[in-house]
C-alpha cells in the first residue's frame, strides 16, 4: 500500500501507523485540524523517506470532505488506502447536561466518519480496489454509564462499516474496523495507566498490519476481543446494576 490518505493525522495512533508506511517509502496525504501540529508530523515523516502532502481541515466541515478526497487523489495519483483516525474522548458528564455538547461530540465521533465513508465508499467502489480502515473503539461494543455518548457514536460507525464492508466486498475493497482498547495517548492522558494500557506505537503497528492484511474487525491488542466478548454476553439484568 503505497498511497495512503490519513484523516486525523496528528492523533497518536495515526502517527505511529504513518511511521510504518513512511518506512516503506509510501506517499502520504495527511488531513488534520491544527496547522502547526500537522506541519510537525509531516516534516518528521518526510525525514523517514515518505513523500508527504497535507491539508488543514476540520472534520466537522462536512462539505469539505469530497474535496479533500479529490485533492488526495490528485496529489498521490490515486488513493490505495485510507485511515480515519480522528476523534475526541467525550466528557460524558457535560454531554449529559448539555444537548449541544452531546450533539457536537456525536458530530465529531460519528457523523463526520459517516460523511467521509459515504464519499470514500463511492470512490473505492468506482476504483474497484483499495482499503478503508477506521479506528472505532471497544467502547462501541456495549453502552456503559460512564461514556455511552462516545460509545454510541463508535457503535454507529462500527455498524455502518459492517454494512459498507458487505457492500464493497464484491468489488474487491476491504473495509477494516479497528477497535483499540486502552491506549496511552494524549486522549487518555488523565487516566491512571494500568496493565491493560497499550502503547500508541504497538497499536499503530497493529493498524498497519490490519490494513496490509485486509482484515475485517481487529481488536488491538488482540486480548480485547475476549474481554469484550465477556462484557457483551453479560445479561442486561446484571449489567445495568454494575458501575462501569
Amino acid at each position: 500500500m503505497k498511497k495512503v490518505m490519513i484523516i486525523g493525522a496528528t492523533s497518536a495512533i495515526a502517527i505511529e501507523a504513518a511511521k510504518v508506511f513512511a518506512s516503506e517509502g509510501a506517499s502520504l496525504f495527511l488531513v488534520a485540524r491544527h496547522p502547526d501540529k500537522l506541519r510537525a508530523v509531516a516534516d518528521d515523516l518526510r525525514s523517514r523517506m515518505a513523500k508527504v502532502d497535507t491539508l488543514v481541515g476540520d472534520v466537522n466541515d462536512f462539505h469539505e470532505h469530497e474535496g479533500a478526497i479529490a485533492e488526495a487523489d490528485r496529489s498521490m495519483g490515486g488513493i490505495e488506502g485510507v485511515l480515519i483516525a480522528h476523534g475526541t474522548l467525550s466528557d460524558q458528564q457535560k454531554c449529559q447536561e448539555d444537548v449541544d455538547e452531546m450533539l457536537g461530540e456525536f458530530s465529531t465521533n460519528c457523523l463526520s466518519f459517516l460523511s467521509y465513508l459515504t464519499h470514500l465508499g463511492n470512490y473505492f467502489e468506482k476504483r474497484g480496489a483499495g482499503c478503508i480502515a477506521v479506528i472505532t473503539s471497544v467502547a462501541g461494543d456495549r453502552g456503559r454509564g460512564s461514556n455511552y455518548v462516545y460509545g454510541a457514536a463508535k457503535a454507529a460507525v462500527t455498524t455502518f462499516l459492517g454494512g459498507l464492508r458487505n457492500r464493497l466486498h464484491k468489488c474487491g475493497v476491504s473495509v477494516v474496523t479497528i477497535k483499540p482498547g486502552f491506549v496511552d495517548t494524549p486522549m487518555t492522558a488523565a487516566y491512571e495507566k494500568g496493565p491493560l494500557f497499550a502503547s500508541a506505537e504497538s497499536v499503530g503497528k497493529g493498524v498497519y498490519r490490519a490494513m496490509i492484511g485486509g482484515k475485517n474487525v481487529v481488536y488491538l491488542p488482540w486480548f480485547w476481543r475476549g474481554i469484550m466478548c465477556g462484557i457483551r454476553s453479560m445479561p442486561e439484568a446484571v449489567f445495568k446494576r454494575m458501575s462501569l
Binding site: 497518536a12 510537525a40 508530523v41 516534516d43 518528521d44 525525514s47 523517514r48
Partner: peptide, 9 residues
C-alpha cells in the same frame, strides 16, 4: 519523550 520529531535535515 513524545517531543521526538525531526524538523529538518
Amino acid at each position: 519523550d513524545a517531543l521526538d520529531r525531526v524538523i529538518a535535515f
